[in-house]
Nucleic acid binder design. Structure first.
Length: 195
DNA sequence: AGCACGATTAACT
DNA sequence: GTTAATCGTGCTC
């Protein structure tokens, strides 16, 4: 193989139950291309947000300008702004018309270390990309990528197959930051993390 | 038109 | 452990 792009995960990967996609994204490589340069990291933490009935999911508000992308086809990026300053990256999952997505919460830097260091260098290396808003800052992801097709390399953002993470290396637990979300949604074990 | 709050982070006591 | 930063979104009036 001689391609610059290595096995981009296809749309069928995302067109499956969100929990399955969240689990299988662990070990995959999130790739951003800016001005022809690759900045990439291995995904080590994800969370699933599943449908209008999930009161932790933005789609609980139904179809609105903000949630529209989640109702679209799988394999697109849902990027949203929160806390007045942070961008979060999700991969849209399941069939078109059903709103669901996987939040990418942490990556381990693999390529483009200099670019990441330039953006995150004020912090210790171990904290460069260990949070959902940290990795979007490190990879230069913002509203311009909302709705981008992760299955089309022209968009400059995609996910490649990476290494398989064995079950004994995966920790599963409740999603983080859902402080005012009612039970049982607040405690659903929909967070996946590589030890 | 106004308001409360957020799938967070970094700095500080 | 606590808190400021900072503004888009969805809901109420």
């Amino acid at each position: 193989m001689n391609s610059v792009v290595n096995s981009i995960l296809p749309r069928e990967f995302y067109n499956r139950p969100t929990l399955t996609v969240a689990r299988e994204l662990l070990g995959a490589i999130l790739v951003r291309v800016e001005n022809g340069a690759r900045v990439a990291g291995m995904i080590v933490e994800t969370e699933a947000y599943v449908g209008e009935s999930d009161l932790g999911c933005h789609a609980k508000a139904g179809r609105t300008p903000r949630t529209e992308v989640m109702y679209g086809p799988p394999g697109r990026a849902y990027v949203y702004f929160t806390y007045g300053m942070h961008w979060m990256l999700n991969a849209v999952t399941e069939a078109e018309g059903f709103p669901a997505a996987v939040l990418i919460r942490a990556i381990q830097p693999v390529e483009g270390i200099e670019v990441i260091a330039a953006r995150r260098g004020t912090q210790p290396r171990a904290r460069w990309t260990d949070g959902p808003a940290k990795l979007t800052q490190a990879l230069g992801i913002d509203r311009a990528l909302n709705g981008a097709d992760l299955c089309n390399p022209d968009a400059g953002l995609w996910i490649e197959a990476g290494k398989s993470i064995p079950g004994e290396s995966v920790t599963i637990g409740p999603r983080v930051g859902l402080n005012t979300v009612p039970e049982p949604w607040k405690s659903k074990p929909w967070r996946f993390l590589v030890r």
